[in-house]
Lab assay of single mutants.
Amino acid sequence: PEDLERKVRELQKNGVSPEQIEKILRRDGVDEREVQELVKKVS
């Protein structure tokens, strides 16, 4: 979803590592495939 992507970009802009971003997304209940997609987009 659009807002998730925005969140991921925000986190990355704040210097959060892709690994941390993955953890955060998983903790928020984002589905694994979605997590991978989002992280791939920003890394």
Rank of each mutant, 00 (worst) to 15 (best):
E10R: 08
P1V: 13
K7Q: 06
E32P: 12
R6M: 12
V35K: 02
E19G: 08
V30M: 10
V42I: 15
V8C: 07
E32D: 07
N14H: 11
P18E: 07
V42D: 05
V35P: 01
E37Q: 08
D28Q: 14
L25P: 02
E22Q: 02
D31Q: 07
Q36E: 12
D31W: 03
E19H: 08
R9I: 09
P1Q: 11
K23M: 04
N14D: 09
I21Y: 01
L38T: 06
D28R: 08
L11T: 00
R26E: 07
L25D: 02
E19Q: 10
V42H: 04
K23N: 14
K23W: 00
R27N: 14
S17K: 08
D3Y: 12
E32V: 07
E10Y: 06
K40N: 12
V42N: 05
P18F: 14
L4E: 01
S43G: 09
K40T: 11
E19D: 11
V39W: 00
R33F: 09
Q12C: 14
V39A: 04
Q20V: 11
E10F: 07
G29H: 02
L4V: 07
S17N: 05
V42G: 06
D31Y: 03
E5K: 09
R27I: 10
R6I: 08
L38F: 01
D28L: 15
Q12T: 13
E10P: 00
V30K: 03
N14Q: 14
Q36T: 08
L4I: 09
K41I: 13
R33D: 11
I24R: 04
V30Q: 04
I21W: 05
V30D: 02
E34P: 02
R26C: 09
E2M: 12
K41P: 06
Q12L: 15
I24L: 07
V16R: 06
K7H: 06
K41A: 12
E34T: 15
E19I: 08
V35G: 02
S43A: 12
E10D: 11
Q12S: 13
D31F: 04
E5P: 05
V8H: 01
D3F: 12
E22K: 10
R26A: 12
K40F: 01
Q12F: 15
V16Q: 07
I21T: 01
P1W: 15
Q36L: 06
L4P: 04
D3G: 11
L4M: 08
V39P: 02
L4Q: 04
N14S: 12
K41F: 03
V35L: 15
V8A: 04
K13L: 10
I21K: 01
K13D: 08
L25S: 02
Q36N: 09
R6V: 08
Q12D: 05
E22G: 03
V42S: 06
V8W: 05
G15M: 04
L4N: 06
K7T: 06
L11H: 02
R33S: 12
E22Y: 01
D3M: 12
E5A: 11
I24E: 07
V35E: 03
I24N: 03
K23S: 13
E2F: 05
K7P: 00
K7D: 01
P1F: 14
V35D: 03
R26Q: 11
N14L: 14
K13F: 07
L25W: 00
R27W: 04
V16L: 14
G15P: 00
R27G: 13
R6C: 10
I24M: 07
I24Q: 07
V39M: 13
L4H: 05
K23G: 12
I24G: 02
V42Q: 05
G15E: 02
E10Q: 11
K7A: 06
R26I: 15
K13A: 12
E5V: 13
E2Q: 13
Q20N: 11
R27K: 13
V30E: 04
V8S: 01
R9L: 04
V42T: 08
S17G: 07
K7C: 09
R9C: 15
N14Y: 05
V35F: 07
V30Y: 15
G29E: 03
R9D: 04
K23R: 11
L38H: 05
D3K: 08
P18D: 09
G15Y: 00
Q20W: 08
V39S: 02
K7E: 04
I21E: 01
K7W: 07
E5Y: 09
K40L: 03
Q36Y: 00
S43I: 15
R33Y: 08
L25H: 02
V16S: 07
D31I: 05
V42K: 02
E34G: 05
G15V: 01
G29T: 01
D3Q: 10
K23Q: 13
D28P: 05
K7I: 09
V30S: 04
K13Y: 06
R27Y: 07
E10K: 05
K7N: 03
N14T: 09
E22S: 04
S43N: 11
G29D: 04
N14I: 10
E22W: 00
V16Y: 15
V39L: 14
E22A: 06
K40Y: 01
S17F: 04
R26W: 05
D31S: 14
P1L: 14
E2P: 09
E32R: 05
V35Y: 06
K40D: 12
D28Y: 10
K13C: 09
E19V: 06
L38C: 08
N14M: 14
D31N: 10
L38W: 02
L4F: 06
E2V: 13
D3T: 11
V8Q: 00
V30N: 05
E2Y: 05
V39Y: 00
K40M: 04
K40S: 12
L38M: 11
D3S: 12
L11M: 11
E37W: 01
L25A: 03
V30L: 15
L11C: 04
E34H: 11
D3A: 12
P1C: 11
L38P: 02
P1N: 14
Q36H: 14
V8P: 00
D28E: 13
E22R: 05
V16T: 08
G29S: 03
L25G: 02
S17E: 05
L25Q: 02
D28N: 10
V8N: 00
R26L: 15
V39E: 03
S43R: 14
E32L: 08
